[in-house]
Structures are given as C-alpha cells and as structure tokens.
Lab assay of single mutants.
Amino acid sequence: MEVRTIKVFTTVDNINLHTQVVDMSMTYGQQFGPTYLDGADVTKIKPHNSHEGKTFYVLPNDDTLRVEAFEYYHTTDPSFLGRYMSALNHTKKWKYPQVNGLTSIKWADNNCYLATALLTLQQIELKFNPPALQDAYYRARAGEAANFCALILAYCNKTVGELGDVRETMSYLFQHANLDSCKRVLNVVCKTCGQQQTTLKGVEAVMYMGTLSYEQFKKGVQIPCTCGKQATKYLVQQESPFVMMSAPPAQYELKHGTFTCASEYTGNYQCGHYKHITSKETLYCIDGALLTKSSEYKGPITDVFYKENSYTTTIK
C-alpha cells in the first residue's frame, strides 16, 4: 500500500517557510505537534488534498525554529505562539472599519479597549522592536488589523473576551517599542525636605499616572512627601515624541487643539466601556464603527496623549 502524501510549508514567522512532505494517514499533531492554519487549530486533523502548498504555523520545537521565533517575536515564552494563534482565530472574524481616516474595530468580545489602543497607536510616533509587531502594525494602518490585535493580546497575556485596560495595554506595548531616546527629568520640591531631581528613561519617561493635564504637570502637581507634608512635583525636561497622561476616570474637559487623542471610560472596574476622542479640525468621538463630532467635550476621561518633541522648564 502506497503512502499518500502532500507537500506543505511549516513556519513560526510566515517569513521562513520549511518544506514538509506530510503523510495523509496521520494527523498534523502526530507529525508536527500543535499546528495552526489561519489561526485555526488543526492539530487533530489529517492532511487533505486542499492543504497542498498551504502554510501551517507550528510551535518552535527545534533550534532553527526557536531562533526564527525569537528573532521575529522577541520572546522565548513557549506558550506565546499558541496564544497568538488562538487569538487570531477570533480577531480574523472582527470587522476593521476605516473611521475618520483611522483603522478602528467594530465592537465584539469586549474589544473596546483594543480599538482605543489601536486608534491611539496610529496617532503617536512609535516604532516597535519585534519585527512581528512592526509588520502587523503597518498592515493594521492599511486596514488589516487582525494579526496586530492578536499579537497585542498575546504580548499582554490576554484572551479574547476578557476586559482590558488601555493604560495597561499601552504599557505592555511600550515595553516592546523603541523608547531608548526618551528621557524625563522631574523635580520634587518640599518646604521641609528641599528639592530632589529624578531622571527617568524609556517607558517611565512617557507615562504618568495622577493627572490628565500635561500643562498642569509642567506647572506642578501636589504629591505627598515622605515627611508627610505636601510637596510639588513638576516637569523639568521632556525628550520624547509623545507623552501619555493618565488618571482614574473623572469628568474632564478636553479643549480642541490642546491634545492629540484621549480615552474615555464609562462604567466601573468590573464592567465598563471605552471610547476614543481625537482632536482634528474639530473633536471626534470614535466608538467602534461609530463616529460623532463636537466642538467641545466633557466626560469621564482616563488617558490623554500629547505630541511632544523637546521641553525644558522655565521655572527657576
């Protein structure tokens, strides 16, 4: 009895394709271990004539594949690729409408935090270190965002349907971005203890939790000093293409032309909904596939993004 075979390709990165001759009487799992086709788990399936010449994702289970996976995804987590594939199996079914010149995501599976993050990423200057993220990001900007969303979920250790947080998501993504040249110098002034300067680099240099107003941050924000008295913390120097200011959701007025974009969060910790506000020729609110415009805006804002380049204080 002759062994019926077909020729397929296996890959971990969709760049390096490895030619395989597979036995049609055995499952993919018996031949390769966990195997995925377009995100779908085909591990328990036997090869079919229609699979001839198709590319299958496999887990990096030998040295060659491990090197290829690390170079593309910059992670050695053995569960990463499987999590990416199972997320992709959902995100490829989502709709990605162009809204006001940006790629958004039609609401499904509690994905409003991903839509808000995706919209924000198209408006701030950011370059990702893992080629996987950078490639998928370019495709997302062009309207094909399924891979990018699935990668975000995998890097953030999230599953489809789980509630997510924009600030946490951005923080994970910033860790995989090139923020080497970003720098922030802060000064804390206390009447009792004097003053202390701190220099922050990388992710810490672009994120701040405690106030939404970048102007206020430049002037000074009140913080408790270690001595128990009130101290003032203010920005001395900022070198970065953008800054992200966050605070627990509270009524906040966004003035046209003073910011790049913002995240609105309605609801409580267990259950809520994100919308995205962007400042173009007027203010726009993007909620999944829905767009509304207004000249002014007041609502429960939790993150505001500002364009920056270089700032030095005039406070002496």
Rank of each mutant, 00 (worst) to 15 (best):
E2R: 12
E2S: 11
I6N: 03
V8S: 04
V8Y: 04
T11G: 10
T11Q: 09
I15C: 10
T19F: 10
M24Y: 09
T27I: 12
G29E: 12
Q31V: 15
Q31C: 12
G33Y: 08
G33L: 06
T35Q: 08
T35I: 15
Y36S: 06
D41V: 07
K44P: 12
K44G: 12
I45F: 14
H51I: 03
G53R: 13
N61M: 12
R66H: 09
V67C: 15
E68I: 04
A69L: 12
F70A: 10
E71Y: 10
H74N: 10
H74Q: 13
T75G: 05
S79D: 15
G82N: 10
G82H: 14
M85V: 10
A87R: 03
H90V: 12
H90L: 10
H90M: 11
T91D: 02
W94Y: 00
Q98L: 13
V99G: 02
N100M: 13
L102S: 08
S104R: 07
K106R: 15
K106I: 05
W107Q: 04
A115G: 06
T116W: 00
T116S: 09
Q123R: 06
L126P: 08
L133K: 00
L133E: 03
A136C: 03
G143S: 05
E144A: 10
C149T: 09
L151F: 06
L151N: 04
A154C: 08
A154Q: 02
T159Y: 10
G161T: 01
G161M: 07
E162R: 03
Y172P: 05
H176M: 10
K183D: 02
V188F: 05
C190H: 00
T192K: 10
C193E: 04
C193W: 02
Q195I: 15
Q197E: 14
T198M: 13
T198G: 04
G202M: 03
V203N: 04
E204S: 09
E204C: 07
V206C: 08
L212F: 02
Y214G: 01
K218T: 05
C225W: 02
T226N: 10
C227D: 01
C227Y: 04
Q237T: 11
Q237M: 12
F242E: 01
S246E: 06
S246K: 05
A247R: 02
Q251T: 15
E253A: 09
E253I: 12
L254H: 03
K255Y: 04
H256E: 08
F259E: 05
Y265L: 00
Y274F: 07
K275D: 04
H276P: 00
T278V: 11
T278G: 01
I286C: 01
T292M: 10
K293A: 11
K293Q: 10
S294H: 15
S295N: 14
E296L: 11
K307E: 07
E308D: 06
N309S: 13
S310F: 14
